[in-house]
Structure formats: C-alpha cells, structure tokens
Simulated assay, not measured.
Amino acid sequence: MEINPLTKPGACHRTGVEVSGVKLSQPMGAEDKARLNRVFVEHGVLVIRDQKLAPREMLEAVKIFGSVFQQHNTRFALPDCPQIHYLSNQDRFPDGRRYVPGEGWHTDHSNDSRPPKATALHAVALPERGGDTQFANMAAAYEALPQQTKRRIAGLVAIHVYQSSHSARKLMALPQAGMERVPNAVLHPITRTHPESGKKSIYINPIRIEGILGLDHREALPLLDELLEHATAERFQYRHVWRPGDLVIWDNRCLLHKANGDYDMSETRYLYRVMLQGDVPC
C-alpha cells in the first residue's frame, strides 16, 4: 500500500491523500486498517484508486472506517442493497428539471442529531471530463479566522433542517416514510471540535441551516455568508478530478464539499454512496 499527498506543497492545509496498491474487495490486515484510519483523520479525504466494487463489496469495504449510517432519502437506495444509494445526473425533479446531486457547498445530513462522520463515493460511470468534487478544509479555515470572529461565533448554535428556506439549491422531497424518520430540526454548534483530532472547525451548511439560535435573520444570514465565503476560499480547497474506479471517502466533521455540474449532461455520471455513523457535534 502506498499513500501520497494530493495537496500542493506549501498549502495551508493537508487535505487529501492518494492510496494505491490496495484491493478493497479483499480482506485487509489490522495494521493496514489502522494506518488508513490514522491517515483519514489527518488528511480528511482518501482517494483509493483502481477499485471495482459491487455494492455489497463496497458496503463491506467502508466498514474499515466505521458503521454504516442509514441515509435519509430512500428514493435513491439500491433495491438489492438499500444501505447503498446512488448519485446520478439522469434523475429529474417532478417538474422535469434535471437533478444534479451534490451541487452547492454542504456537509452531508447535518440535519441529523448524529450526522454521518464520513461519506464514501465509488465511481461507476463518469463523463469524459468535468464533474469534479471540491472540498473545503473547515479546520484550516477556522484557524485562519481573526480572533474577533472566533470570539463572535464561540457558543453560537445553528438550526439545521432538511431543506433551508434560504438555500439556492433545492433537494428532492423525502418520501413519506423518510419524513416520519428525519428530525424536523436539530441544533449544532457553529464551532465544532473534532472528536479524534481535537481540532476546531467551522461547522456550517448553507443547504440545511435555517438560522442561528437567538439571532435575528438580519444578523445571522450575513454572518453565515461571511463564514462561507471565508471558508471556501481556494487556499482551503482540494479539488478532486475523478478517475474510473476511484473510491473517495471524506470526513464530514471538518469538510464542506460540492459536486460540479459542468459536463455534458448527455453523458452519465453515476456513483455509489455510503455514509458512516457519527456522533453528536460539540
């Protein structure tokens, strides 16, 4: 197994490593599992190259990093392996508009009381070019905040819902069963401490946050916009250019991500997705 950094030398963060020489469809020793988990916490994004995994093989492979989390919108579940969902640019909203999953900066399922600690995607079909996924390191972004801003956001709590009324991106509606299972709203701190690394991060999600507890929208929304603009600056980013067979797993506790719909939509972009159980943000 070889592990090499993907972040450019001199960057203010160490987001992303490439892992090669591994077949996730085969059993892995305890030492290698422990090494991958250490690297995951240190770098946030693991790009494991040249995999060819059936759904159940992927499900077993990602258990190296934790237990599987039940995703919210069951309309995307694979019938023969419902813990795995698919992402596809071939789906459409009821009004006929194309649904491009993953657009806009966000962290997955932050509207859960215990949001998933990680998300894994496995590339099954990709467009010839485009469709990159961008990641923003929220720990590096927090570290770079002015002390005055750190003091301002300390102790602030955001209200997370399934679909924020302020979000430019619209999500697919939940099926009735999902609406009964998913919380109406949860509260999470805007400054989050990573349970393993101990680092503090900015924890926001423009698709899910409805407001900040105790603040008027006239104060809360500009603050959230300011934090997002700061945190998603290019200096905090790693941009992943997908290759066939990539399995990419990332840390939702300290990263934002977004998919780019900048490719020929007559070509199929199709990936398997699994999430892993997390803890209560604090």
Score class of each variant (00 low, 15 high):
residue 113 S to K: 12
residue 34 A to S: 08
residue 81 C to R: 10
residue 24 L to Y: 10
residue 201 S to K: 00
residue 53 L to Y: 04
residue 203 Y to K: 00
residue 76 F to T: 08
residue 5 P to H: 01
residue 178 G to T: 01
residue 176 Q to L: 05
residue 181 R to K: 13
residue 25 S to K: 12
residue 249 I to E: 03
residue 37 N to Q: 07
residue 31 E to V: 08
residue 249 I to Y: 02
residue 125 A to L: 10
residue 160 H to P: 00
residue 129 R to I: 02
residue 216 D to M: 12
residue 199 K to Q: 15
residue 223 L to A: 10
residue 266 S to C: 04
residue 214 G to I: 03
residue 113 S to H: 13
residue 144 A to E: 13
residue 51 Q to V: 00
residue 43 H to M: 00
residue 109 H to I: 09
residue 97 R to G: 08
residue 261 G to N: 15
residue 216 D to H: 14
residue 184 N to Q: 15
residue 32 D to M: 14
residue 184 N to Y: 09
residue 20 S to C: 14
residue 40 F to P: 03
residue 250 W to F: 08
residue 2 E to W: 03
residue 125 A to M: 09
residue 96 G to Y: 12
residue 63 K to F: 08
residue 238 Y to E: 09
residue 10 G to R: 04
residue 250 W to N: 01
residue 102 G to R: 02
residue 102 G to K: 01
residue 154 A to Q: 13
residue 273 R to T: 13
residue 208 R to A: 15
residue 63 K to V: 05
residue 40 F to E: 03
residue 58 M to I: 07
residue 99 Y to H: 14
residue 110 S to D: 13
residue 79 P to I: 03
residue 238 Y to T: 03
residue 168 A to C: 04
residue 133 T to S: 05
residue 60 E to T: 15
residue 264 D to H: 09
residue 96 G to L: 12
residue 253 R to W: 02
residue 69 F to I: 02
residue 135 F to H: 00
residue 239 R to N: 08
residue 28 M to E: 10
residue 166 H to T: 05
